[in-house]
Computed example of a mutant assay.
Amino acid sequence: MIFNSEAPNSALNHLLELISQFSFTHGTFETNISFLSLLREVKPTVVEHGFLNPQICILIQGNKKLNIGQKSIELGAGDYIASSIDMPISGQVSKASKETPYTSIKITFTSEEIASVVLEANIKPREENQLREGACTGKVGREVLLVLERLLHLCADSQAAAFLTPAVKREIIYRLLTGEDGAMFYNNMLLHHEASGISKAIHYVKANFERSLTVDEIARVGTMSVSTLHHKFKAVTTLSPLQYQKQLRLQEARSILLSGGVDVTRAAFQVGYASVTQFNREYKRLFGLPPLKDIQAIRTRPN
């Protein structure tokens, strides 16, 4: 369905008005709806490396630059990025100011929730044979934006929100599946990752990242050969299985250090490293600074 160009802009403006009523200046605001978060930045940010968890992030205002593997993507108002796996990614807010802050809406979901909507609504998108990356970008239609308006209104009524938001979330998934980019959303978020066995391999690495894993072991979990595992794993995550494990370890170590009370040596051992020297070297390679300097830099950032 194609809408005139003014309709989505009007819906985006309505969403900005609703979000402005929440009492936060910048950063992430967790609403009283468990799967809904709001993000705002009043100036451009530095490049950050991390994992995009299973979610959809919809830009309402401003711009964000993302790097997925070797691809660089610029997102603007009305664009979204979504992932059904923990996807390694780096990015930064590239356009934001106090007058026009970067604003986005994040909704977490699972592949099971998407599959449930596909089955119960009898949706039959065009299936593709090509295995794609675990994150995809697209445009949200006006219908999705209108559902988001209703979702934000429910934040003011906890009793109504507890009862109604599961259905609203399903409607958002339905609109994404049946919208202009519905086939892409379906293929990237659900079809290939589940059918190819790669989803099992990814979940296994995530659940056991602190252990010493072998590629043979991961391949057996996904019921595939080692060569097939390498091909599929890199196609979906942009990393090899052991590179993916390394990033999980380093991200977890960073979270541990930020929480305080643990020194670098204990953090390294806690996430599975046997050598603190190796940990420090790989941490700096990913985040740009040694552990202690990186944590200090994060804590002293004004934003």
Results as ranks from 00 to 15, higher is better:
residue 6 E to Q: 07
residue 9 N to V: 06
residue 12 L to Q: 12
residue 28 T to G: 03
residue 29 F to K: 13
residue 36 L to R: 07
residue 38 L to W: 13
residue 40 R to L: 03
residue 42 V to Q: 11
residue 42 V to P: 01
residue 47 V to S: 02
residue 47 V to T: 10
residue 48 E to N: 15
residue 49 H to T: 14
residue 52 L to N: 09
residue 56 I to F: 14
residue 66 L to W: 00
residue 67 N to E: 12
residue 69 G to Y: 08
residue 73 I to N: 10
residue 74 E to Q: 07
residue 77 A to N: 02
residue 78 G to C: 05
residue 78 G to K: 10
residue 78 G to L: 02
residue 88 P to I: 06
residue 88 P to V: 08
residue 91 G to I: 12
residue 92 Q to D: 07
residue 93 V to W: 03
residue 96 A to F: 09
residue 103 T to G: 02
residue 105 I to S: 05
residue 105 I to F: 05
residue 111 S to Y: 09
residue 112 E to P: 05
residue 112 E to W: 12
residue 116 S to I: 10
residue 120 E to V: 10
residue 124 K to S: 13
residue 125 P to S: 09
residue 130 Q to M: 07
residue 132 R to K: 15
residue 132 R to I: 14
residue 141 G to R: 11
residue 147 V to E: 11
residue 150 R to Y: 05
residue 151 L to Y: 13
residue 155 C to E: 04
residue 156 A to K: 14
residue 164 L to Y: 11
residue 166 P to D: 04
residue 166 P to T: 01
residue 168 V to P: 10
residue 175 R to T: 05
residue 175 R to D: 00
residue 178 T to L: 04
residue 178 T to F: 01
residue 182 G to K: 07
residue 183 A to N: 15
residue 183 A to I: 03
residue 184 M to S: 15
residue 186 Y to G: 00
residue 189 M to N: 15
residue 197 G to Y: 09
residue 199 S to T: 11
residue 202 I to P: 10
residue 211 R to T: 08
residue 212 S to G: 03
residue 215 V to W: 06
residue 216 D to I: 07
residue 219 A to F: 05
residue 220 R to T: 11
residue 221 V to W: 00
residue 224 M to N: 03
residue 226 V to Y: 01
residue 229 L to M: 11
residue 230 H to N: 07
residue 230 H to P: 02
residue 231 H to G: 03
residue 233 F to S: 00
residue 233 F to D: 00
residue 234 K to H: 05
residue 234 K to Q: 14
residue 240 S to F: 08
residue 241 P to Y: 02
residue 246 K to G: 05
residue 248 L to F: 15
residue 253 A to M: 04
residue 256 I to C: 06
residue 258 L to K: 14
residue 262 V to Y: 05
residue 270 Q to K: 15
residue 273 Y to P: 02
residue 275 S to I: 06
residue 277 T to K: 06
residue 278 Q to I: 11
residue 283 Y to C: 03
residue 285 R to C: 08
residue 285 R to L: 13
residue 285 R to V: 10
residue 286 L to Q: 00
residue 287 F to M: 12
residue 288 G to M: 07
residue 289 L to Q: 13
residue 290 P to A: 07
residue 296 Q to T: 12
residue 298 I to L: 02
residue 300 T to K: 12
residue 302 P to H: 07
residue 302 P to T: 02
